[in-house]
Design a protein around this nucleic acid. Structure first.
Lengths: 136, 136
DNA sequence: ATAACTGTAATAAAAAACATTACAATTTTA
DNA sequence: TAAAATTGTAATGTTTTTTATTACAGTTAT
C-alpha cells in the first residue's frame, strides 16, 4: 500500500456518499482531496473492481456508489487497497547464512498477519455510513 | 515509520536475545539483516533510548539486551519505532473549502487511532521471548 | 600505541510516490 | 453531426522518502 491509498479511497467514498447517487467527476474529487485527478481515477478503478463504486464515461460522467453506504465496511475498503504488510514492506532480504536471518521472515509474516487481522477486525466495526455520519 | 523500522528493530532484538548477554557489534547485526551498519546503529540508538538495549563503546564493544526478553513486549517495540499512522501518512492536505475535505482529517485520525490501538493490543500479547522461542 | 568499536553528520544513490501530459474512447447535448 | 466534457490509461517527469556510503571523532581493550 502506498500508505495513502486508504485515506484517499475513504475520502472518495465519503464524497460519493454525500452526493447521494449523483455522479461526481474525478476532477471534483481531486479538488477536495487535493491530489491529481489521474490518481483519483486509478483509485476509482480499484474501488470499481471491488464493487464499491460504478462509473459513467463521457460528458457528464463520473462515479457514484455501487451499493448502500451501510453495506460498505471499512475493513473491506482497507483490504481492497492493501498491497503489502502494514508493519513491514517485504523488500526485506536477510542473510540466509544466519540462523536467525534465515527464519525471521516466516515468523514476521505470522506476526503481521495476526496483528493485521486485529486491525481489520477493528475497522470492520464501522461502515461507510457510520464514518460519513460523523460529518456535519 | 519508514515501515521497515519495526522488522529491523525486532530482528536486532532477536539477535541480541540469541546472544544471551554477549555484546554484538553493529557490523554483525547488519550482516544478518543485510542492511547498512549505520542504519543498525541508528535503530539501536532508538532502542537504547527506550530502554530495550544497552551499548558498549570501544574495541570489543557492541550491544546487548537491557532487560529480560520476557519483559519486552512487541507492542512497546512497535510504539518505539512508530512515527506516523499505519493507515495514512499525514502529508494529506485536503481542500479546506470543501465541507468534507475540511473535516476529514479529524475523522481519519480517530479512526486510525482506534485501529492502531487494536493492532498494538494484539502485538502486546507477545513478548520478545515468545517471538524468539519460535526459532529453531 | 594500535586496533576495533560506537556515535553521528554529511552526502549520495536508489526507490517509491505522486504529478503531469497526452490522447483515444465514450457520451451528452446543442 | 460536431463540439464539449468526461473517463481510461500509458508514458514520462518530479519530488520525496528511504537507504547506503563515506568520513571521522571519541572510546575502550590489549
Amino acid at each position: 500500500m502506498s500508505n495513502s491509498r486508504f485515506p484517499i479511497s475513504l475520502h472518495i467514498l465519503t464524497l460519493l456518499n454525500e452526493a447521494k447517487g449523483a455522479v461526481v467527476s474525478s476532477e471534483y474529487l481531486a479538488g477536495s482531496i487535493n491530489i491529481n485527478p489521474v490518481l483519483v481515477r486509478k483509485e476509482i478503478m480499484n474501488l470499481r473492481k471491488h464493487g464499491f463504486v460504478e462509473s459513467k464515461e463521457g460528458k457528464g460522467g463520473g462515479s457514484f456508489l455501487a451499493k448502500s453506504a451501510k453495506d460498505i465496511n471499512l475493513g473491506e475498503v482497507y483490504q481492497s487497497v492493501r498491497s503489502s504488510n502494514v508493519l513491514g514492506q517485504h523488500k526485506n532480504e536477510p542473510n540466509p547464512k544466519c540462523p536467525i536471518g534465515r527464519q525471521i521472515n516466516q515468523h514476521l509474516d505470522s506476526l503481521y498477519s495476526n496483528a493485521e487481522n486485529a486491525l481489520i477486525a477493528n475497522l470492520s466495526k464501522q461502515t461507510l455510513a457510520d464514518f460519513a455520519s460523523a460529518f456535519e
